[in-house]
Design a protein around this nucleic acid. Structure first.
Lengths: 229, 229
DNA sequence: TCAAAAGTGTTCACCGTACACCCATGG
DNA sequence: CCATGGGTGTACGGTGAACACTTTTGA
């Protein structure tokens, strides 16, 4: 029996980030143009290698921060991808993460050091390696999450209208929802604060703005409440 | 820009298997006694290191096969664990898998080369490293799966009674279920075959045996059916 | 005054849940 | 004949889904 692991193989471990945003109209994905061979010039998820002295979560946050300047963002580990030749350069396994970010907040910080670009989810270019597969999985997970946790709010600005929220759910779930049923359900959740303030940009009448009440939400969760949106 | 990854860190990647079984009465976990320092003699999930030329799934199946002699088993990747000092010997990340096996089939093959032992889920000894955390996560995942996919059948022998099936669900979900409602729900799923055969071991009257009809299940799934048990 | 989006309730079908009694048999 | 587990049906409440009209106001 060995008392160390000297004879074991070591491998490169990457993290790749599936970064979702919402522009009020469509679900978006942030991609970067790959700067090195092979597949140079193709679109890719933003990724990086795990360093010896950091956890996967830290690596994923570092990658996200490097690209967007954002931290304190909703992020969740998705899956470990490990096909032998997934990266033709060298054996690399990749742990994918997906992140939900507020697209406006991001745009105010974005540099295009990495030639990053937002793509509509319905119009994604071909991605390198197994990144397409990662995206698929992230989308499925996001859809599932959406109907058990109010993750949608992560994608919206602080103040938003019911219509924006509904549109967001519609693009995530890829189906149309009934306005009345949607509002009923959301209001039942009782985690929104209706502000005394209207957004006048979308109609003459104007629509009330809401805020997500995170504290109330946390409290409900800790009281054993489970959300089903 | 680099054209290779020479400057990147490589790390040890382990897989650890959370192996569930069911003895007709309780949910069980298969553990091994750790044979090397540190924490020698303590109980541990069965694990192994990812080799250069295999995928994570392959590694997990290899580990499972090595311990149990079983392959073709329900197995699912769970999560990547990566705390810096999770393994005190050396920096190692571990991708956990959980498996559902038929405990009888296993017992007929078991050698105790690895001092493996089944433990009731309600009476698990302290585990090494972060294996306790892995188990927690696996249990949560199993509970969720149980109510969206008929995974339970993986844990039962080919022929089983309704009572066994119900008990299994009860121990997984950790709550009592109503016999009538349970049978109604299960029968609605329409993936069981009632056999012309009774199990006489549990009562004088005897109870009918059922088989899971995997083909029917696959067909339903591919027709877009979603299960909610 | 009209166009365009906001806001709002009711009905119905279905599903989950609670609940109790008879059946068959071996001892 | 009786003790034990097996097997079955109904009633009710809650939830999800369908559905249409009025309000506001800037142009």
């Amino acid at each position: 029996m060995n008392y160390n692991y000297d004879q074991e193989d070591k491998v490169l471990v990457a993290v790749d980030c599936i970064i979702f945003g919402f522009d009020g109209d469509e679900l978006k994905l942030l991609l970067v143009k790959r700067e090195l061979q092979p597949e140079k010039g193709k679109w890719s998820l933003m990724g990086g290698f795990l360093k010896k002295e950091e956890t996967l979560d830290e690596a994923a946050n570092r990658v996200l921060y490097t690209l967007t300047g954002l931290d304190d963002v909703y992020m969740e580990q998705l899956y470990g991808f490990s096909k032998i030749d997934r990266d033709p350069v060298e054996r690399t396994i990749s742990v994918a993460y997906y992140a939900l970010i507020n697209i406006d907040e991001h745009n105010s910080k974005q540099s295009d050091k990495y030639s990053a670009q937002w793509f509509s989810i319905s119009d994604i270019p071909q991605l390198i390696f197994d990144h397409g597969e990662m995206l698929e999985k992230a989308l499925r997970r996001l859809r599932r999450r959406t109907s058990t946790d109010p993750v949608g709010f992560e994608l919206l600005p602080k103040k938003f209208t019911m219509r924006q929220l509904q549109t967001l759910y519609e693009v995530i779930l890829d189906e149309e929802l009934d306005k009345r049923n949607f509002q009923k359900k959301i209001k039942q959740l009782d985690v929104l604060v209706k502000l005394n303030e209207k957004d006048m940009s979308s109609s003459r009448k104007g629509s009330f703005l809401y805020e997500f009440d995170k504290e109330k939400y946390e409290k409900k969760i800790s009281d054993g409440f489970t959300f089903k949106v």
